[in-house]
């Protein structure tokens, strides 16, 4: 990605006095960014640290890299990991798209997009095709991402084994030994009790045939999109202080059994707005008499399809 090369050590003023929120700190800044903060909020030393973690993560696909996650002005669990990753890779010429639940207009997406507009002054977009960086919570856009794009996932819990083994000292060992029988036992139990695997989101994947990985709480429907994706996929978990990555065109397999293959789950309907029958749908309750309709969760994709249909109709 493009990097802000001129932004070294905004606070290296040489004094040790605590600056009293007086705005007395001079720092170079990109146009559009706010006073007193470095480009994209994080100082350059922190960004370098995060980029080093990202490089490691790319080198070992699916492996969780501990990193010195910083405290962010947004709360833990609301995307601090994704924000730090985005802040570290963002350059002044990037175009950022932020989605939550697939939509650009959800409150948290707006809040994060605003944050980057404020602290980095970068261009933002709602069009997946126009973005160089897409930060997401809980979805992968329907439109296939390209080689020149990066998708940054917000991750609440990077450890795929945490419900089976809460101790990180132990899960670390299980990863080191690729000892993943436990995860399969969980899937076995689902089939034995319920007839099929009952994981509907945050469905565990094997990356590059080696590391078991949490895809973050995206619906299982999105899992196949991770497999051999042309775009670089980065994952940031702020509270848990872990970064991991999937390089472009890497194998990502959802765990399953030969006789109970992985199946993506979606509501068996078509979108009420664009008519799409193969995208992930949100269920919208329209009245209190059981009325409901289904619409695309990816608002940008849906809008584009509607526009295309309108254009075709006009022609």
């Amino acid at each position: 990605m493009n990097s802000a090369t001129t932004m070294d050590s905004p606070r290296a003023s040489g004094t040790i006095d605590s600056p009293r929120a007086s705005g007395a700190i001079d720092s170079p800044r990109a146009s559009g960014a706010i006073d007193g903060y470095n480009f994209a909020y994080l100082d350059e030393a922190t960004k370098r640290m995060i980029r080093r973690a990202l490089l490691k993560a790319v080198a070992i696909p699916g492996h969780q890299i501990p990193f010195g996650a910083r405290e962010m002005p947004l709360p833990y669990g609301w995307g601090t990991g994704g924000i730090q990753v985005t802040a570290s890779i963002l350059g002044p010429t990037d175009t950022l798209k932020v989605i939550d639940q697939g939509a650009d207009d959800t409150t948290n997406a707006i809040s994060i997009r605003r944050f980057f507009t404020r602290v980095a002054g970068v261009a933002t977009t709602e069009h997946t095709a126009d973005a160089t960086v897409v930060q997401t919570r809980h979805r992968i856009p329907e439109r296939t991402l390209r080689e020149d794009q990066i998708i940054v996932y917000q991750v609440p819990q990077p450890e795929p084994l945490f419900r089976l083994e809460p101790r990180r000292t132990e899960t670390k060992r299980l990863h080191a030994l690729a000892d993943y029988g436990l995860m399969h036992v969980r899937l076995y139990e689902d089939i034995a009790r319920l007839g099929h695997i009952a994981k509907a989101y945050d469905y565990p994947v094997m990356v590059n045939g080696r590391y078991l990985m949490s895809p973050s709480p995206i619906p299982a429907f999105d899992n196949p999109k991770m497999h051999r994706m042309p775009a670089l996929q980065l994952f940031g978990a702020g509270r848990e202080k872990r970064i991991y990555a999937i390089p472009p065109y890497t194998d990502v397999r959802s765990l399953d059994f030969e006789d109970h293959p992985f199946r993506p789950i979606r509501a068996p309907h078509v979108c009420a707005l664009c008519g799409s029958g193969d995208t992930y749908l949100d269920e919208v309750i329209t009245d209190d008499a059981g009325g409901r309709l289904f619409v695309c969760s990816d608002t940008d994709f849906c809008a584009e399809r509607q526009a295309d249909t309108a254009k075709e109709a006009a022609e």
Partner: peptide
């Protein structure tokens, strides 16, 4: 925060 995408998946499940 909204979790309706995951919830939808759970619902179908």
């Amino acid at each position: 925060l909204p979790h309706y995408v995951d919830f939808q998946s759970e619902l179908e499940n």
